[in-house]
Design a protein around this nucleic acid. Structure first.
Lengths: 197, 197
DNA sequence: ACCTGAACACCGTTCAAGT
DNA sequence: ACCTGAACACCGTTCAAGT
């Protein structure tokens, strides 16, 4: 047993960690500020110093999610071949793995509920993920493996497909088991959509 | 003022109608069974006869949403040219319009939260929507405007893209204003992905 | 600055009892 | 069968007060 200080130390960070755990285990609906406070041994009013709202907590969770998603995607590119096909494949698998590995988090990240208030930051974070697709396309164009044209106009549809697959997989709207082989079809289809004439 | 009977008449249907209105106006988070009951002039315990759970209400709402989405998509095909490109364009616009016209509903439809319990029906409803894409592809193949191969393996990526775009648009993760012209790029990209060699 | 305790106005869900 | 009323165990949020 540790003696517990009056000040928690870093309640904000602790709340986020615990919240994501609960999110993963019991879903958004079961996420309660009061329970979080209980779990961390602080009063139920304590969280309000760090998150003005339950929504503010969710926003922070989503922001964190985007940061980690970005890291995951970047990491997927380090030890992979240089061809566009290989890089796209690695990116796609990484995105889908992230999604299926944390379905509830993805739901929160792309939830409509991020009111126009603090969502500025969130949308920027989301956009940063999309930019990875942009870089991928630009590089593919340099290599002559992707058709010419404004890179955003190719990367946007591509990212759209990637996200759509991940979202469908996560909401179990994809024929189960199809998630794995289905992704390969999706990747092939994306390659077609990006290929030079 | 009507005299109010003891029996509501069709409380179940009334709950669904009112719930979707609230969903549209104030979001899922603000949807409360007690408030619904208040609005309809019944006791707060009355809804439980028709929906064992708040989740059961949401599931019913989602099921309804899928049915209407299906109707919308079918309707989009009636007065449109016969070419694959035209039919796909019509379908895509219809899907995105449905999504942006009822963002909160789409969120509920594709939410992770439909527990494995009653979700059987929901997943079937979702799958029915996907089947429209399947028919589109099959017809396109007959016309020689879509490449050969198992239709599902082409329609699945296509539907994935469609849904991804709608979902991103709805969660405001798409560069605003890009939703309109962006869709055209996505349609062109889908056509590429489906085109014969 | 950070947290507590009490208070307020809500929830979802259940269950005996009424019609 | 369908609904009511009361009860239970929760919520989020606010705000004076404590350290």
């Amino acid at each position: 047993m540790q003696t517990r200080r009056y000040h928690h130390g870093d309640l904000r960070a602790a709340l986020l960690v615990r919240a994501e755990q609960t999110l993963r285990e019991k879903g958004v609906a079961a996420l309660s500020l009061r329970e979080l406070a209980r779990d961390l041994g602080v009063s139920h009013a304590a969280p309000s110093r760090h998150f003005k709202d339950k929504q503010a907590l969710l926003d922070a969770l989503a922001l964190d999610g985007f940061a980690r998603l970005r890291e995951t995607l970047v990491a997927s590119q380090v030890s992979v071949g240089e061809s566009f096909a290989e890089r796209l494949g690695a990116l796609a698998h990484a995105y889908v793995d992230f999604a299926t590995g944390g379905a509830e988090l993805l739901d929160v990240m792309y939830s409509v509920k991020h009111g126009p208030a603090a969502s500025e930051e969130l949308i920027a974070a989301g956009r940063q993920v999309g930019e990875l697709a942009l870089e991928l396309i630009a590089e593919g164009q340099r290599r002559g493996e992707v058709r010419d044209g404004p890179a955003e106009r190719i990367s946007q549809p591509l990212f759209t497909t990637l996200h759509g697959f991940a979202d469908l997989a996560v909401s179990s709207m994809l024929p189960l088991g199809v998630v794995e082989e289905g992704l390969d079809d999706v990747i092939a289809y994306m390659l077609r959509g990006c290929a030079p004439d």
